[in-house]
Amino acid sequence: MLAYIIRRLLYAIPILIGVNLLTFALFFVVNTPDDMARMQLGVKRVTPEAIQKWKVERGYDKPLVWNAAAAGSATLTDTIFFSKSVRMFAGDFGRADDGRDISREIGSRMGPSLAIALPTFVLGLFVAISFALLLVFFRATTLDFAGVVLCVAMMSISGLFYIIGGQWLVSKVWHLVPISGYGGGLDAAKFLILPVIIGVFGGIGSSTRWYRTIFLEEITRDYVRTARAKGLPERVVLFRHVLRNAMIPILTGVVVVIPSLFMGSLLTESFFGIPGLGSYTIDAINAQDFAVVRSMVFIGSVLYIAGLLLTDISYTLADPRVRLQ
């Protein structure tokens, strides 16, 4: 078990290196820093000096991977690759275009992101699984059919609609909660309720349908027939037998996103003006702040890989066949 986890951890290293190389290639090789500078400065202000100044300000004036001018180890370290990509492994993301330290910024924004993403995730999981169990309990009846149709309809609605519609209805028509903004402490609750509800609502359709499929597949298994042949009521069959087994495929799909909850939700955060990582990312994209985007890509992959690892572990815990072998 421990060896297994260590092996998975070791396996993560080449993947992170791969991500790093990929982003490096995307950001510095496909386009040279000169191109970026030209674009950022705008057509009118492009002069060689301006470009040079822009690059120096951001530390993009070094050679890409090999600094022939430097001496000793500096041939490797005094390069864009080293200063911009390798140092990410140490958690050093450099500065954003507005001069702020990206690592610091990320640290302070994770809290709000999590405050909204975590409740959404937990509540969404709970609601969708209960809903799916309900449909499965009444499978092959009109209720089931109507439920599935409702799910399909709900997942056909754009996520943007849920947000815009929800904001309009709850905040503008009913004046129940503030439309956007964020506060610390207990105050946060009144800002969070709406985005969480909307987040849960928007995800119900597809996840309920997915869980329902899993449950239905599980319910045709032989052991379910055995359980019924014992005389167990359908409710017990569903909760004790089907749900436990279905948790295994559900876990594989769900656990992987848990670490990524830190990343926040791009749309929700930007619509509701929550100062989390999601809105940070969107702002960076809109402002074309390459340093921030690059950092978020890196953090995102680290979290995803952590999610994979967590999946493996939870899977092992949930399934005795894996745990005990």
Partner: peptide
């Protein structure tokens, strides 16, 4: 509900595939 008492209580049943007929996680 009456049938549930018969199942297991009055009539027991075993199946062909012992490999799949038992719940793997219990």
């Amino acid at each position: 509900s009456g049938m549930r008492d018969v199942r297991g209580g009055g009539i027991g049943m075993i199946f062909q595939e012992p490999a799949t007929s038992l719940n793997p996680v219990l």
